[in-house]
Amino acid sequence: MKFNIKNIIGTIAFLISQGIAAQFYVGIQSGIGNIQSDIAGIQTGNRLGGAIKAGYIYSLNSHFGIGTGLEFSQYKQEVSFSRPTATLSNFEVDASTSAFVYNMTTNNYREKQTLQAVQIPLFVQYKKNINTGVDFNFRAGAKYFLPVNYEINATADYANGTAYYPDVNLTIFDLPEFGFGQQNNYSASGEYKTKGIVMSSFELGFTFDMGKKSSLYAAMFLENGYGTILNQNKNESYIGYSPTSTAERKANGLYSTDKDAEIKPVAFGVTLGWNFK
């Protein structure tokens, strides 16, 4: 799906120019934030997500309006292998430019991920008065999801990297000064390379008048990403190869093992906001 940001910016600029007829809002979102992947053999847990947002809704008539704004979201989750001990292999090149198969084995590998993003929503709102001071609201639209930081903190009981040179049928198990061997109590941090995608967004809730010029907004939301936020051009070992020391292995992360993996945010939960008429 291609995203034409020029059209969205143009629409937002038009709505800003009509701001005198708009209803402004601020709010927060909280719930389950899942950074889904299609990589086999891994599992996720402790998934949390939330956002703060501000924007406005331009009324087209008594029932329909168009809204936009700016949001800052954060996702937190843990990722690990489905089995305690796992081995993954990929191709590497050593300091002498010789190619080899790099086998990385870990025990109890866990990866804490924190994804922060800026979101630009564009949605249509339908509202209907159902009682004195109470409106039913339904919002549907899309968001441009732009990651600004995707950090990982990896730990394992041990990380053991070995090399197999197929040209000479040689396997190296323990040569730490060249990056091969076992490191106990592994701990390292890293960062995923990312790109922006489009998300669909839906909200279903109610507003409650709190005065002549303000109201409380409460809703359930569901958001789903399309495409992948991962941006890399080659497969990498989840714990990188260092040609100088086993103690300098970088955490590339489990999602880096497949450059074509689909990594996308999905979130659902509760929205609370305050509207200003």
Rank of each mutant, 00 (worst) to 15 (best):
N61R: 00
S62N: 07
H63W: 09
I66K: 03
I66C: 03
T68C: 07
G69C: 09
L70S: 10
L70G: 07
L70I: 13
E71C: 05
E71F: 09
S73T: 09
Q74H: 01
K76C: 05
K76L: 10
K76A: 06
Q77Y: 09
V79E: 02
V79K: 02
V79Y: 06
F81T: 00
S82C: 11
S82F: 07
P84R: 13
T85K: 13
L88P: 04
S89V: 11
N90V: 03
F91K: 01
E92I: 06
V93G: 02
D94C: 01
A95I: 04
A95E: 13
S96W: 06
T97P: 00
T97R: 02
S98D: 11
A99N: 10
F100N: 05
F100G: 05
F100P: 00
F100V: 01
V101N: 04
T105M: 12
N108M: 07
N108Y: 12
Y109P: 03
Y109T: 08
Y109N: 03
R110L: 08
R110Q: 15
K112L: 12
Q113D: 13
T114P: 03
T114V: 14
L115E: 02
A117S: 15
I120Q: 02
P121S: 09
P121C: 09
P121R: 07
L122C: 04
L122K: 03
F123L: 07
F123A: 04
Q125P: 01
Y126V: 05
K128D: 09
K128L: 10
N129H: 06
I130K: 15
N131T: 05
N131V: 05
T132V: 12
G133C: 14
G133Y: 12
V134T: 14
D135L: 15
N137A: 08
A140H: 01
G141T: 01
K143A: 08
Y144K: 11
F145W: 12
L146W: 00
L146Y: 12
Y150L: 07
Y150N: 11
E151G: 12
I152P: 02
I152E: 00
A154I: 09
A154G: 10
T155M: 09
A156T: 03
D157F: 03
D157Y: 00
D157A: 05
D157L: 07
A159Y: 12
A159S: 15
G161L: 01
T162N: 10
Y164M: 06
Y164G: 06
Y165K: 01
D167R: 15
D167C: 07
V168P: 04
V168I: 14
L170Y: 13
